[in-house]
Design a protein around this nucleic acid. Sequence first.
RNA 1: GCCGCGUUGGUCAAGCGGUUAAGACGCCUCCCUUUCACGGAGGAAUGACGGGUUCGAUUCCCGUACGCGGUACCA
Length: 509
Amino acid sequence: MSQKKVRVRFAPSPTGGLHLGGVRTVLFNYLFARHHGGEFVLRIEDTDQTRFVEGAEEYILECLRWCGLEADEGPHKGGPYAPYRQSERKALYRQYGEQLVNAGFAYYAFDTPEELEAMREVEKARGNHSPQYNHAVRKIMRNSLTLEAAEVKTLLDKGTPHVIRIKMPENEEVSFTDMIRGEVSFQTNTVDDKVLLKADGMPTYHLAVVVDDYLMKITHAFRGEEWLPSAPVHILLWKYLGWETDMPQWAHLPLILKPDGNGKLSKRDGDRLGFPVYAMNWLDPKTNELTKGFRENGFLPEAFVNMLAMLGWNPGSEQEIFSIEELVQAFSIERVHKGGAKFDYDKAKWFNHQYIVKKDDATLAKLFQPVLTEKGLAPEETYVAKVTGLVKERCHFINEIWDHGFFFFVRPDKYDVDAVKPKWTPEKQAFFESWITVIEALPDFTFVSLEESFKQLATEKGIKPGELQLPFRIMLCGGKFGPPVFVIAETLGKEETIERIKLALAIFA
RNA sequence: GCCGCGUUGGUCAAGCGGUUAAGACGCCUCCCUUUCACGGAGGAAUGACGGGUUCGAUUCCCGUACGCGGUACCA
């Protein structure tokens, strides 16, 4: 066992919003690094210039910040292995491609896109379902393996567009031990000669990921399961570049699947089923299309992170609610489940509810403030906090504080009269009229004294207090909801309570 | 098609050769509350299929099925 310091990396390509699954990959990286006292680096894999999206990198950074999963090194703060954007490391890669060519592990290929297309057509016509540029095909294409050395030199000297491809060996088995799946192996014959360096001089993911993981001294590489099929290319590259002993340990994370049916969860599913898929709102600068995020939907980052941790990983105990510190403590990559997990929004809501209930009222009130502001309301902070404390038990989201407590801020604009009228009597009307005078004179306006006087007067008038409580609730809230009535009254205060009783009495009569 | 990975209730999942096959979400019933929620007590519901190996398979092996992923000068 080497004693190398653990270094992991999250390497997104900045092409859009950050998906749930991406955040989970970040999380697992982060937890693993912290658990082992290692470092977590953020590397931007922007080698495909045609897919560059304005603002995507900033968005990713902001997501990590919101989730509390910030990287120790990255384009935002530099570090000993800067730069952390592959586009800024462009000059680095070519030498490794050439080293590979010189060692006979790779070759120059001059085929034009048209020639490639023609080859595929021919292959398809021959019944080849998905033509590959492989050990057989490379023998009939235009590359440094088939061309005369002198011609290759001329072509190169003239600056002819070309790529560098890996030369996959024939009849070999490549295997490695995945931290989650155990031994995984591939036959090299089934893998094609992947492009390593593109005609524009940029490396492909395949080259860049191994060069940068090596240069950045990455010890453990976690990525989605969709990368498993190209693992043999990467393994071979580590070997061919002579870095085999420094190769990181791999772990291919299971996918997050859509709740209904099968397949990878996509933002489309979110739109379709009515829940967010991205961490935060993402506005596509090209299409102007807005994709909803967990943050804007009223999720607390701790809840979001906790929920994600339990999707594909479990501690082996019955504990489900974990602070980030507890996660760091408990996390182990071996306990990551192999199979994909269907995303369950109801469970996500449950997690958020747990955290809302736990969170202190003042903080919650602050997060809720924007909703109030948007409605043109500006109640006192302490009042908002008090209300929040009263209703949070029934909220799954921050925004729901309004749904469950709006009547603390505005008078009801409609009443559930159907719940009152059928059983309304002049006696009940009289009860409330006289109770107003009773509470007006109350020395203290607390839910205890309110309830006492309410029940006492009801008994005096020969009405069961229970029959009066629902009408009273509707007077204050407009409907059958909310915290205990007398607590509502106390919170509203004497004046407002009396006013609402009078207003409602006029309607009930 | 080919290659790879996977498969325990509706969902997340524990288990690592002998269990009444945990727990959570959701659902249902009841209690609490003359609102709703929280809380509490119950309930229904699970090892894809077929072969082995074994005294004994959810657990190990092999097939099959199904699902997913990959099969680009995208990551």
